[in-house]
Each structure stands twice: as structure tokens, then as C-alpha cells.
Write a protein that binds this DNA or RNA. Sequence first.
DNA 1: AGCCATTGACTGACCAGTCAATCTATTCTC
DNA 2: GAGAATAGATTGACTGGTCAGTCAATGGCT
Lengths: 209, 209
Amino acid sequence: MSSQARTANGAKGASDKRRLILDAAVRVFARQGFHACRVSDIADEAGVAYGLVYHYFDSKDEVLDTLFLERWNVMLDLIRTVDAEDKPVREKLLAIASFIVESYHHDPDLMKVIIVEVTRAANSFGDTHIGTIREAYELIGGMIVKAQEEGTFRREIEPRFAAMAFYGVIEQLLTGWIFDLLPQGEEHYERAKLLVVDIVCGGLEAGPA
Amino acid sequence: MSSQARTANGAKGASDKRRLILDAAVRVFARQGFHACRVSDIADEAGVAYGLVYHYFDSKDEVLDTLFLERWNVMLDLIRTVDAEDKPVREKLLAIASFIVESYHHDPDLMKVIIVEVTRAANSFGDTHIGTIREAYELIGGMIVKAQEEGTFRREIEPRFAAMAFYGVIEQLLTGWIFDLLPQGEEHYERAKLLVVDIVCGGLEAGPA
DNA sequence: AGCCATTGACTGACCAGTCAATCTATTCTC
DNA sequence: GAGAATAGATTGACTGGTCAGTCAATGGCT
């Protein structure tokens, strides 16, 4: 008996198993890739029976969908919050970059799965979630528009392109860590956050010339 | 591998069919994705019999490997050539960005396949070709080191991070076009080339402060 | 009369998803 | 509070379809 469950119903135990399966799926997807792994691998990793995966999820796809949406929605909330604040763009972009880098720091496997299996998968999953993904780009694009109106950023740059560039730098740094092409560790994560903002803002800011 | 060099026999027709299969594969992979398509789809698209694919290639994987290596090696050659030239970094990076953007302009399907199915596929293909991919990053990293030594770029930025950032911006712009999130057309391609260099150099250059 | 290109039906393995059976816990009845 | 009834959680063997890769036969060229 786990001492954590304090509610009267057995429903607590139920959601525990669901979580167990999701967490196991992250590890399995990260290790073997979504396509290469079997549903039985997830069940084994979670220490539950094969059929239980289908008790909580309609399909293998839905497991990945759930993982992606859980995390992406947290990020969208963060971006919306930051967007609503009254701060210089530089700080806003730093907050977003920090959040994403910290997400990787905290759970590299999950971020690997999201980037490799969803964000970049133009067919299959990318297609399903394109609307959700697009929303993030649009919010960032909006921040850039505002900075252009305030005169902080040069006006001649198409904001959508700038937003993509910003996100592209971050995602490529994560990819570098995922592939073990870049050195990792807290110190590097901190410097990476600043680098992202420096690079993008440096190129976008209205020069004093 | 390839018997193209063979002169005596009807090798000409042979290599034609091989090319036909590769070109068909690009279209099919781009449309359906590598995992979702069947080898018979490739054969149908090429207008040849199923078995012929296996006459020229050992496996479905080898078809993708061939497509990736063909293109990536052309890019590596370009980068090496540019690297050897005596030009300002800005021009070197512009040449590389231009080449990649033009590659997409010339054959969007092929670039989509390379990015979506290989470059970002940490498991499966990404893993197989990681060495080849890394080489490109290292060459770009080398250019940045040189620019730092010359005093054009700030020294405190880790060159590997800067190289990843540069490549990340480009790849994300292509991804934007692939997903139809960014407007396309010759004019936009031209502006994108400049944007990439502006952003990255703007953030890396030694400030006059 | 031989050699390679080409064909396409076939097979063997694999695996997502189903389902009937079993377990466990909570509530109901007297 | 014993026992029955109900509902949900959990199990894993099984099935049905899919497809990568094989191979024996055929075509075409020199």
C-alpha cells in the first residue's frame, strides 16, 4: 500500500498506473524511438500487463499525443504569461529560452521525444499537432512585432521569420545535446540561454548607427 | 557499390532505372514519410517492378541512406571549398546559407526528406549518419574559431554553440517552409539568406563598444 | 547461349489492438 | 459485520493484417 494515496476511492491508484505508463513510455521512446519500439516494451518498462496500456489509452499514438500535449501546453502557458507582462523583449525571450532549456535539463528524455518524434515529424505527428505548434511561433512573432513597433527591433525583418529563427536556435542547441554534439551541464545550460538571446537580439536590434 | 562506371554492357539503362527509383523514393518519402510508405509505393511511383528496388538496393533503409549521402556530401564539398577561400566570415556563412536555401528551392522534397527523416531522427538514421552530420558542424565551427582569432567575432562564445545556432536558424526556416508556416517564393528565399547571416553575425560580432 | 535486368507472387516475421477471464475494492443488504 | 453484488482494474494469449525481403521465372541484349 502506498502511503501517498489518501483519498477514499481506488481512483488514485488508477491514475498512478496511468502516470507510470506515460513515464515508462518517455524512457522507451527516447531510447528506441517511437516507431522502433513495441507497445509491449512500454508495458514491460512500466511493469504492467500489455492490455493495461489499452485500458488507459486508445492507441500507441495516443500515448505520444498525451506526452506531447501535456508538455507543450505548459510551454504555451508560460509564453502567454510572459507575453502579457510588461518587460523588454530581451527579457521576454530570455524567459522563454530559459524555460525550454530548463525543461531539457529537468527531463532530457521527454524533450528528446517531443522534438524528435513530434516537432520535426512533418508527416504523422507533426501534421496532427501543427496547429498547437504554430501557436507558439505566433505568440513569439507577436512579441517581435511589438518590439518593432516600439523601435527596439528593426522593422524590415519579417516577424515570422525572426520567430522561427529564435526557436530554431534553441531547438538546435537541444538537438546538439541530444546527439551529444555539445557539452552538457548546468554551466553550459546557463550560457546557452544567454547565447540564444544574444544571437537573436544582436541581429534584430536597431543599430545605433 | 554503384556499377555506373561499367562501360561495356547496357549499364546505361541500368543506372537510369536506379536513378528513377531514387527520384521516385524522394517523392514518396516526402509525401508519406519513410516509415509510413511501403517499398511497393516506391516501385509504383517509379513505374518499375517491386523486385527491381532490391536489385539496386539491399534494403529500404539503403535507399534513404543513398539519398542522404548523395546530397550531404555535395554540401560538405561546398563547405570545404568555402572554408578554404580567403573571405570574411560573413561572406562564407552567406555562401553556406545560400547553398542550403537554394537546395531547398531546387528540390524541396529532397530537403524535406533529409531534414525530417535523417537529420532530426536521433534514433535510427540520425544515429547512423551522426558522423557525417557532425563534420558539417565542425567545419562551420572552425570558421567561427578563425573569425574569433581575427577579432571579428567575440571570443567568449563557444564556437560549437555558435555553429549549431547558425545551422539551427537555417534548418528551422526550411522547416517553416516544409510545414507551410512561412511564405515561400524566390523573394522570400533571398531575404531569408540575408536574415540568417544578419542574425547570427549580428549577435557574434565584436561590438564597437 | 550467356549474362544481367526485370518481374511479381509468395512467405515468414512482426506487432497493434482485442477480449474473455480474473482480481480487487467499494458498496449494498439483512 | 458476513456475504452478495457491482464496477472497475488488470491480465496476457490470441488474431488479423501488414510488409520487408526472397526467389524462380522471364525478357532482352550482345
